[in-house]
């Protein structure tokens, strides 16, 4: 029953696809890679755009990847209400492609932030984390352009729609979803916090993201 097929989208410069595939398989599901020039994604139960530095982060992180042939197929897939997750650079690609509101700016510190942080799961419509609303989860982040920005009017709208998904302990936004709740972008890396062997991180916190979407898929199947 619970054997779902995850498509993992790979762009030139993506570097977390194997970690995501490992996490998905470790949780008992199928993972397959999809090259950015492919245009068919309908065979998958969920799509993941992993982290990395697509196109060397040239121009702006995610900007060049957002013009890839696969993006039209992902947009169509998302419009059907099917689940799409963008992690870190994947989140940046989804905002650049217009599948999520707002944009990710350079960190105010100008440094690459690489540490494990605590996040509060907001009351949200997000299919990928709805069941964890109201809890704290601890996840690793690793990014140079992770400061979420949307104008004030957009943020008010997003808050009332339940589109703000994760905030850190300083109330900074770390993850958002679209109005329907199926397209989800997060700066932290859940795939790095699924199992004890993944070292420094509390095991299971990252698994929450994948197990929540699996529960959702079981209901809608």
């Amino acid at each position: 029953m619970s054997d779902f097929r995850f498509g993992i989208v790979v762009f030139p410069g993506t570097n977390c696809e194997q970690d995501v595939a490992h996490a998905v398989r470790w949780l008992g599901h199928q993972a397959e890679y999809i090259w950015h020039q492919d245009t068919t994604v309908s065979q998958f139960d969920a799509l993941v755009l992993p982290g990395g530095s697509s196109y060397g982060n040239y121009l702006r992180p995610g900007a060049l990847a957002a013009a890839s042939p696969i993006i039209a197929a992902i947009s169509e897939y998302a419009a059907q209400g099917k689940p799409v997750l963008g992690i870190s650079n994947g989140f940046q690609i989804l905002t650049e492609a217009g599948l999520l509101p707002g944009a990710l700016q350079q960190n105010a510190s100008l440094t690459h932030i690489c540490e494990t942080l605590d996040f509060y799961v907001e009351k949200t419509v997000c299919q990928w984390l709805q069941l964890a609303s109201g809890t704290m989860i601890s996840l690793p982040v690793s990014h140079g352009f992770g400061s979420y920005y949307a104008d004030a009017a957009t943020l008010i709208q997003m808050e009332s729609n339940g589109q703000i998904v994760l905030r850190d302990t300083q109330a900074r936004i770390a993850a958002v979803c679209n109005e329907q709740g199926n397209v989800f972008g997060m700066m932290p890396h859940p795939e790095r916090a699924c199992e004890v062997l993944a070292a420094n991180h509390p095991a299971g916190a990252g698994g929450t993201v994948f197990s929540t979407i699996v529960k959702h898929l079981e209901v809608v199947r």
């Binding site: 121009l59 702006r60 900007a63 707002g102 944009a103 700016q105 920005y149």
Partner: peptide, 8 residues
Amino acid sequence: QLLANPVL
């Protein structure tokens, strides 16, 4: 469409 991000 590409060279500038209208959000920022």
